[in-house]
């Protein structure tokens, strides 16, 4: 018996906004831990999220570039689970009314594109440096709340090699974004 691999990809595209998805903390890299936080991205009692207009704009541009149907109405939902890198006990994401639906990139159909916030960074500390031996971890919330566009493809890829090629050559969304695949920039939309 032989099996055929059927591959669909879920790609997290980091949007190149100046601030986080739901608060005004600046997105910069390599800062000392917990220097880019506020009541909203720390999940302090009473804090409320306000969506970043630029992130939504970038999300719509990605949808347009992929030939998606842009939703006339789109809302955020809470995805509830407990983890120390998730300060509110839920991730603000999109569920049944995503920003973009359908679309195509090369030979691969796109299922949807939605926006969400990234988790914080968990640093595992141990003398040996091995994760499974570490007793304690520390959480750095600088990255927590970074805007992400999650692109979900249909299961149209048939080999790992094909998936890799599609991802690196075709899925080149930047520099609206910093693609998880670190693809070279192919188009550069400007916010209007």
């Amino acid at each position: 018996m032989s099996y055929e691999p059927v591959i669909g990809l879920e790609i997290h595209v980091q949007l190149a906004t100046r601030t986080k998805m739901f608060c005004g903390c600046a997105l910069t890299f390599g800062e000392p831990p917990n220097t880019r936080t506020c009541p909203v991205c720390l999940g302090l009692p009473g804090a409320l999220p306000v969506a970043n207009a630029a992130a939504i704009h970038f999300g719509l541009m990605i949808g347009e570039a992929l030939g998606c149907r842009l939703a006339p109405r789109s809302i955020f939902h809470r995805k509830n689970y407990f983890y120390p890198d998730l300060p509110k006990g839920y991730q603000i994401s999109q569920y049944d009314e995503p920003l973009c639906l359908g679309g195509q990139l090369g030979d691969v159909r796109i299922h949807r594109v939605h926006l969400e916030e990234d988790a914080a960074k968990l640093v595992h500390a141990s003398s040996s440096g091995r994760i499974h031996e570490s007793r304690a971890s520390v959480v750095d919330f600088n990255r927590g709340g970074t805007p992400l566009a999650e692109m979900v493809s249909e299961p149209d890829l048939r080999s790992a090699e094909q998936a890799r090629e599609w991802l690196t050559l075709r899925c080149a969304v930047t520099p609206t974004s910093r693609c998880a695949a670190r693809a070279p920039p192919s188009w550069a939309p400007r916010p209007s």
Partner: peptide, 9 residues
């Protein structure tokens, strides 16, 4: 109330 987890405050 999920945020009251003993981590940040």
């Amino acid at each position: 109330l999920a945020r009251y987890d003993g981590v940040r405050y």
